[in-house]
Nucleic acid binder design. Structure first.
Lengths: 141, 141
DNA sequence: TATTGTTATACTCTATAACTATA
DNA sequence: TATAGTTATAGAGTATAACAATA
């Protein structure tokens, strides 16, 4: 079609989300939930501002996601003993299990893409997206 | 981070849109406007259902975009003489000019990505997105 | 005074259902 | 009856401003 990535990106994201995903829709969780869960798993005890920064979500946006996850018993908010303004976030055991399930679901939804590109180009594709994001972020600062 | 494209895609789209783009934000036009304009340019006299299909936009969504473009004198709706239910859409001369300007703006906004990947990989990247979309669409039907 | 998390709010994008006018 | 365009409506996602608690 045209020579820019914007329109393509919308088509791809629409298709994925129509398949009920960007991250974790299949279980009725808000978009970004799985991203946040995996960040917590990799960095237990993170604060919400840290997570928001990493996930590319605004503060208020993250509050809603954490509310949802906590209500389902997948994540726990613990007040930091050293700085009582902060929440230290951790996954519950149930959260760890659910996260694995969600990754499976997402992987299945994205299977057509993986099959189309092949495992090697699929990996390259994701690396390219990461590099594109990094390049834009570098520009911003 | 994780092994799926969904979260990455959100980061990339957010970054682009923060730079005031998905397609044509810089002039206050709704998202998808430039996509629609380029489709009309390539297929003058298209109907709205055709355009919605091609652009991955819903019928009602397209109405708003066309309303906006028509109000600015960039696009004209003409009643089809053979089937008076249909609108035949065409770009005005001013629309053609504006489209070129918008392409320039978008290209500038996406320049960091092009520079990061290099022209060849940038092209490959866009092809991969297209293939991914096609693969998902194939699955759907 | 600055920061963390929160609430309130608004705007955009997307989706669905129902209406009209044509066929 | 089916289709093209439209209107009305609702639901996500994202963003900003303002507030309370803490530093």
């Amino acid at each position: 079609m045209s020579n820019s990535v914007g329109p393509r990106l919308r088509l791809l994201r629409n298709s994925l989300q129509a398949r009920s995903i960007s991250t974790s829709e299949p279980f009725g969780l808000p978009t970004g939930s799985l991203t946040v869960m995996s960040l917590i798993a990799a960095n237990p005890g993170s604060s919400q501002v840290q997570l928001a920064e990493w996930a590319g979500i605004t503060g208020p946006g993250l509050v809603g996601i954490i509310d949802d996850l906590e209500q389902r018993g997948l994540v726990k908010r613990e007040r930091s003993p050293t700085d009582r303004r902060k929440n230290l976030l951790v996954l519950t055991d149930e959260g760890e299990l659910k996260m694995e399930t969600l990754f499976g679901e997402v992987s299945e939804i994205e299977a057509p893409i993986r099959n189309e590109l092949g495992p090697q180009d699929f990996q390259r594709f994701m690396e390219m997206v990461d590099r594109a994001v990094a390049a834009l972020d570098r520009q911003k600062s």
